[in-house]
Amino acid sequence: MFVAKVKSDIIKGIIEVTSPLVNEAKFNITAKGLSLRAVDPAHVAMVDLELKNSAFEEYKASDMELGIDLDKLSGIMKLASAGDLVTLEYDEEANRLIVKIGNLVRRMGLIDTAGMPDSKVPHLDLPAKAVVKAGELHKGVRASEAVSDHLSLNIDKDSFELFAEGDTDTVNLKLPRDMLLELQSPGKFRSLFSIDYFSNMIKPVRSEDPITINLGNDNPIRVDFDIAEKNGHVTYLLAPRIESE
């Protein structure tokens, strides 16, 4: 059984976090809440999303997996205004997800989850940690997009730095310790990332909210932030670009 009532913004948030990576996702539903893990087709990025039952206005569920087409869900959710309440209900007999927005009802066919494998989390060596205000990162990324398709992230003992270099232009955003919410680094660490992917990862976070970054040398990055008024959490992993050239 699964019946839940939730603010439309929360569902939109899930779509915003997940849809840059995959078109369909397997939602794991339990009495405690819902979670999903998705990896993009090129195996470059992974998202882990958790939403506690406390994020919902009403929530009743037993254990199940729902294979949801995110394009379909996104399509219907576009019709919901901010603040609208959305009811989600699993119709076991027809194997459909019923989405109700006011008097609008969409009965949505589900995807067989048998073909959707569970990915393991790769082993990571990420000694450096910085907690940065999302707004600062948004600015750095937007400036970088104009000059290159990749950027480097650097953390040392005193600062966090974002750097992008194009053919003629460079962009640099250096945040010293006092402009960071937290900084822990036993040395210098640097990895290179695709701006497209990185941008999609941090986009859903509101400017004033914190983003936690864990970084290593030529290693994937781990990005963590809360969603749904801290009733949910997102962890992103992004594989680095190859250095040189």
């Binding site: 090129a42 195996h43 470059v44 790769p122 497209d196 994937p220 594989a239 670009r241």
Partner: peptide, 13 residues
């Protein structure tokens, strides 16, 4: 794919 060709795979780690 231009990006991808210079991009590492998450599961190489």
């Amino acid at each position: 794919a231009e990006y991808v060709l210079k991009q590492r795979n998450l599961f190489d780690f």
